[in-house]
Structure formats: C-alpha cells, structure tokens
C-alpha cells in the first residue's frame, strides 16, 4: 500500500483555481521532490495535506496509509504521523519552546499508545536530537520561533520532525534562506530521518538541497499539475534551464 496517494486533486482559493488535477504516489521509504516556479501552488499542496483552513477542495482525493486524509482534522493528521515543516514557521510569543515540544510529543505518544515522557526523559531525548542540529538549550528555552533568524527557524522545524518522528514529512522550502553551513546541518538532519517506513515530500524552488538529500523522484509542479516527473537528473536539468518551459503555461 502506498504511504500517500493524491488523486486528481483540485483546489481553489477564493474561487481562484490553484491546483488543477495533481496526481502523486509516495511509497514508504521514498523521498520525492516537488519543484516549481513561485506561485505554482507548492505551499498550497503542503497546506492541503496538513489540513489548513481556507482552501476549497473541488475534486479528487488523498489517501494516506489507506485512510481518507482529507476527512481528518489537522491535529488528527499530525497524530497519525503527518508532519509539515513550514515555509514560514510561526512565531508564538509566550509559549516556551521546550514546553511546546513536550506537549506535542506527548500528544502524539499517547495517540500511539506509548507512555508520556516525564520532564527528565524528555529533556534528554530533545538534547540529543538538538545537538546534531546545533540547537542549544538557550534556544529551546526561548519562546517558539520568536526573534529567530530564518536559519534558526528552519533548524527548529527539523528538530520538531526529529522529535515527532512522522511517517510522512512534508518539507516546504526548508532550504530557502539558509547559508551553506546551515544547509549542510539541515540536510544532515533530514538524511538522518531517512527510513524505510517514512516518506518525505521535499518542496523546493532550487536544486541545491537535492545535492545533499538525494530524492528518489523529482516532479515539476506547474499550472496546478505535475507537469513533468523524473529522477535526480531532472532537478539538475531544471537548475540549468530554469522553469521557463513551464512558466509558459502559467496563466
């Protein structure tokens, strides 16, 4: 059974069609990259999968692990193992990062039938993961994303992914705004989570992330559809030629 199957997905925002028949199938263990020009609907796709409000699904379906994903509330999806690393992580003043992470992890653990981690075990678990992402205690004690640099926010998203251990991770432009050092740290974090049971959807505008995280498949999203699919070589080709070929179709 596929981990994720998107069939003929049509989405409008305020009556404006954004996705016009997306088809995509991800098997467990696979990493797919979705590339495409700005405004082509990549983030919209990520929000549809994670259940954000404000979009109208006019046709199609999304089957995740054999269940109808679109029927689930955002928090249910998260507890079922869907994770979105946001393109623009939200700053939440007043909520301490560690407290937030612990609440999230325990909500998911309880759903999986595991016991909640106590403060000590949790801290140990988080520190271990945080270290490899070069996130120190001070950063964890700050309010969620508040005043973080772009790179810090993206590292924090990957940390959350490492802690919550999703089955399906959607990473929306996790590479944008990162310098080369940060890109390597983040890539290492993503690669560490490659797993035979986990699927990933890497959304990116540029090819450079794919130099570090090698995808099994690459798709081009343009004109609200998957306009072309291929392997890693397609990403290389896009890097050289740009999206001009696809832009032509964008209204």
């Amino acid at each position: 059974m596929a981990l994720l199957e998107i069939r003929n997905l049509h989405v409008t925002v305020e009556n404006k069609p954004i996705l016009n028949g997306v088809n995509l199938k991800i098997e467990p263990g696979e990493i797919h990259a979705i590339m495409g020009p700005n405004g082509s609907g990549k983030s919209t796709l990520s929000y549809i999968l994670s259940g954000r409000e404000g979009y109208k699904i006019t046709d199609g379906e999304v089957i995740y692990n054999g269940i109808d994903l679109l029927e689930l509330e955002p928090d249910q999806r998260a507890r079922e193992g869907v994770f979105l690393a946001f393109q623009y992580p939200v700053e939440i003043p007043g909520v301490v990062g560690l407290t937030f992470l612990k609440t999230a992890l325990n909500a998911i653990r309880v759903h999986r039938g595991e016991n909640e981690l106590d403060a000590m075990d949790f801290l140990k678990f988080v520190r271990e993961k945080a270290q490899s992402l070069e996130i120190d205690d001070e950063m964890l004690k700050r309010f969620v994303n508040e005043g973080f640099s772009g790179g810090e926010k993206k590292r924090m998203e990957i940390l959350q992914m490492a802690i919550l251990q999703p089955k399906l991770a959607i990473l929306d432009e996790t590479d944008s705004g990162l310098d080369i050092d940060a890109l390597q740290v983040v890539s290492k974090g993503i690669n560490a989570l490659r797993d035979a049971n986990r699927g990933m959807l890497l959304i990116t505008h540029y090819q450079r992330l794919l130099n570090y995280v090698h995808p099994d498949k690459v798709h081009v999203l343009a004109n609200g559809r998957i306009a072309k699919s291929g392997d890693g070589a397609l990403a290389q080709e896009l890097e050289e030629k740009g999206y001009a070929e696809f832009n032509a179709f964008v209204e």
Binding site: E53, P74, R79, P89, V90, I92, V95, F100
Partner: peptide
C-alpha cells in the same frame, strides 16, 4: 486567537482545545 498560530500548534498534534489553551496562557504569560 491568531489563526496561524492555532494551525501551527494543531499541525504538531495539539487538539484544538489544548492549542487554544496554550495560546491563551501564552498571551497572559507575556
């Protein structure tokens, strides 16, 4: 409550009630 913040928390597995509560506490915690 801020809709984006609510969605962010829910996308991490917090139920709507818990997410709202976290944000109210945060608002006051400041």
């Amino acid at each position: 409550l801020d809709a984006d913040s609510l969605f962010y928390l829910k996308s991490r597995g917090l139920s709507p009630d818990v997410a709202r509560r976290v944000l109210v506490e945060a608002f006051l915690n400041e």
